[in-house]
Amino acid sequence: MKYTLIGICLLLIACGGSELASDEIYGAQDEAVDVIPVEAVLAEPQHYMDDEIAVAGTVHEVCQMKGCWLMLRGLDTGEGLRVHVERTETGEYAFTVPSDISGRYAVAVGTITTPEAEEEAHYQEDAPGTVPVLSMVAVGVRISPEESI
């Protein structure tokens, strides 16, 4: 198995690499129907409340402890959407994202909610200075291999 993987990697390098790389998916693998840019969601959140939608944007911060949340931001605004992963009833994470995906383009699928004050206090401890307007409980995150422009 390991040797096959190494073989494939060598082949990829030989072919020039990135053209064969595909999106990495964490959590649910479904094809998202309509992908909405994060700016649109932040501008008119009331349209999207409590529905499952797919939001696209650039990853700004990621949880460095477990990979259980990330911040999506639009290009021109400082505001952000906090995406945190779905949990089980006992509090375990259903999936996590890698901690080195800052700057990458991502699509998160989930439900939009308003952040709870108590939760926010915890996140401020984790990564001070980030001000989300909205939060999302994500069931899946698709991360593009390319750095966003």
Partner: peptide, 10 residues
């Protein structure tokens, strides 16, 4: 108590 359909889609 995790949603089963969602688990399957992982």
């Amino acid at each position: 108590g995790f949603p089963t359909g969602l688990k399957w889609s992982f």
